[in-house]
């Protein structure tokens, strides 16, 4: 079993190494082909130009990144802070489930992005509309994943705890929550990605700062290089926040 685990770890390292090599190859190809074909920097900058821009304008880009990160964290935090308790209510109360669940599912079919102009109208150009869009997009998968996770517990397990004289409170902490955690973290991972998308969309609609705003201004100035540089930062933001959740998950959920 131990050797199997070591092997799989090595495979993963190899896999990661392979992915990096492949990405580097693609970048090299990109770098070579663009001047060969004669595409202008206005249309498609080379990786080198983008990289140089990232270094040169790192202060603006970092500033924008912090701004967007703040929106993402607030929106995501709200989604967790409201989504998880709501999932608990839905799980524990049949009445609430009957009233709220269909509404939630109906609401899910509304593209949250389409609410962005309204939210800007109501809340102005500041943080608020972006945080709300980020929250709304991230919220649904977190609620669903938590409810699904809580429902995974087998009734027999509950009987076992009951036979020990456990209260519902004890059953929750010792059984329901740990059983639900893998699913909850699945929801959080989907949610954090959506929170980034929500924030960027919010910035597209109306804003004065942030990576989405930076892309819009770059577009207006035909500065494709800057556009790409902002895109790189958005990707980094997405990856970092995803892995942050991943590491928290590792701390709480034992993975075989």
């Amino acid at each position: 079993m131990k050797t199997a685990r070591k092997l799989s770890k090595r495979n993963m390292a190899l896999g990661n190494g392979g992915a990096i090599l492949f990405a580097l190859a693609l970048l090299a190809l990109w770098q070579v082909i663009v001047p060969l074909v004669g595409i202008s920097e206005l249309v498609l900058p080379t990786p080198y130009q983008i990289g140089r821009r990232l270094v040169v304008d790192h202060r603006i880009l970092l500033h924008d990144s912090y701004y967007t990160l703040f929106e993402v964290l607030c929106g995501f935090g709200m989604a967790v802070g409201i989504g998880v308790p709501l999932a608990l209510l839905i799980f524990y109360s049949k009445a609430i489930e009957r009233v709220l669940y269909p509404l939630l599912i109906a609401f899910q079919t509304v593209p949250k992005v389409a609410l962005a102009p309204l939210l800007v109208l109501w809340f102005g150009f500041g943080f608020m509309p972006k945080i709300l869009i980020s929250f709304l997009t991230a919220f649904f998968p977190i609620v669903i994943a938590t409810v699904v996770g809580l429902e995974q517990l087998e009734e027999e397990m509950v009987r076992l705890l009951k036979s020990m004289g456990a209260s519902e409170r004890q059953t929750f902490w010792k059984l329901r929550l740990p059983t639900a955690l893998p699913s909850v973290f699945g929801g959080l991972k989907v949610g954090i990605g959506l929170a980034v998308i929500g924030s960027i969309i919010g910035e597209y609609v109306a804003s004065e700062q942030g990576l989405g705003y930076r892309q819009l201004t770059a577009n207006a100035q035909f500065d494709s290089t800057m556009n790409f540089a902002a895109l790189v930062m958005i990707s980094i933001l997405g990856v970092l926040t995803f892995y942050a959740i991943h590491f928290v998950e590792r701390a709480f959920v034992r993975v075989r």
Partner: peptide, 8 residues
């Protein structure tokens, strides 16, 4: 094994 001890 110690779960019931905790619960009780």
């Amino acid at each position: 094994i110690l779960l019931p001890v905790e619960v009780k």
